[in-house]
Design a protein around this nucleic acid. Structure first.
Lengths: 198, 198
DNA sequence: TTTTTGACTGAGCACTCACTCAGGATTTTG
DNA sequence: CAAAATCCTGAGTGAGTGCTCAGTCAAAAA
């Protein structure tokens, strides 16, 4: 049975690694960096994780569980008047989260994942689960909206993909500081309404 | 005056480096890889470029000149009936290019640039020129459309940003092989029409 | 108490990498 | 021609990397 101390250290490593990988990326972070920041010997990291890449994937998994779970729960708790309301709530939540935990979003946009994914089923699986999880949320909202009449008859899947692409793209431009894109919030909502209004 | 041979070698290095950086990314490409593939000594690379990062930036600059220039020229040559037509032409061209020279687009989506940019004015400048160059193309089309009546009165700047975000996001999902997003071409055009129709 | 087990350590290993430099080759200039 | 300038070379350097492993330590088991 693992001691509480061990659990704590493993979690501390994960947390620290998440910060480093998000802010600096995979290659600009050395295992030494993480060990120093966590106050843990380098060997400890390799005791808990098979390799640096394994640690990287563990961070992604944690993000998946945290974020997608949080997202779904948030939408369950809220009571929306209509499908369109739910969609707007989802968009709002997504953009809000992206500003609150910007560095975690950077993690998702790290290119390294997409480089590993083709050869690493686990990595692929996590990414797939994150994206399809998010898109399915939008899809559900649209489907519901089509049923209650707040959204016109469209292909929920395609529209959900478009909506997601749009807001994820904006978050990206924002993180890169190319444009204050999320300030376009009203414009985005307006655009989606335009796509979907009956 | 530099000899023709020198020019050739420098160009060969640039070409080879572009391929490597696009396909493998910055960290997975070693200077040795580039020198071997080009058939040039490692020292030669450092004779022509101050550092690996300098070479990386030179590749970005070349992309900028090639792509944005090509884009603008393409739109100049074509005669569009209306602003809306021009916008569709621009979208079409963008998506077409992304499939034809996919690896060059991957270059633009490499995260390393966005990591360097905050500290490197040159890098920042190139990225800024590329993005604002592209967005201004869409903006021009929208403005023209507003004048000839094919597009309703909107904020050209904001709408251009949205249009660009949408299609660039789709290209991204496509390159990552998460979804065959560019197959949504019709849907995208339809969406833009919905946004902009009078 | 003694033994065993699991968490943890950090010096050290093998290796890779960007970059250098002394010198050779080639072209341009006087 | 010679001298100067430019272009090019590739073995070598040193810093840094992911990862190992022999060993310490504390707590649980016998």
């Amino acid at each position: 049975m693992p001691s509480t101390r061990a659990q704590t250290k493993k979690e501390a490593i994960l947390q620290s690694a998440s910060k480093f990988f998000s802010e600096r990326g995979y290659w600009d972070t050395s295992v030494n960096d993480i060990s120093k920041a966590t106050g843990v010997a380098e060997g400890t990291i390799f005791y808990h994780f098979q390799s640096k890449e394994d640690l990287f994937l563990a961070v992604l998994q944690k993000f998946k569980e945290d974020f997608v779970g949080k997202f779904k729960q948030h939408l369950k708790e809220q009571k929306f008047a209509s499908g369109m309301d739910m969609l707007e709530g989802a968009i709002s939540f997504y953009l809000y989260q992206s500003s609150v935990m910007e560095e975690r979003f950077l993690l998702l946009h790290r290119h390294h994942y997409y480089q590993i994914a083709p050869e690493n089923p686990k990595c692929w699986q996590y990414l797939e689960e994150i994206y399809s999880g998010l898109i399915s949320i939008f899809e559900q909202a649209i489907t519901r909206g089509m049923e209650d009449g707040s959204i016109r008859q469209v292909s929920p899947n395609k529209k959900a993909l478009l909506v997601f692409t749009l807001i994820d793209g904006l978050v990206r431009l924002d993180t890169y500081n190319l444009y204050q894109a999320t300030s376009l919030y009203d414009e985005v909502i307006e655009s989606c309404r335009c796509w979907l209004k009956p």
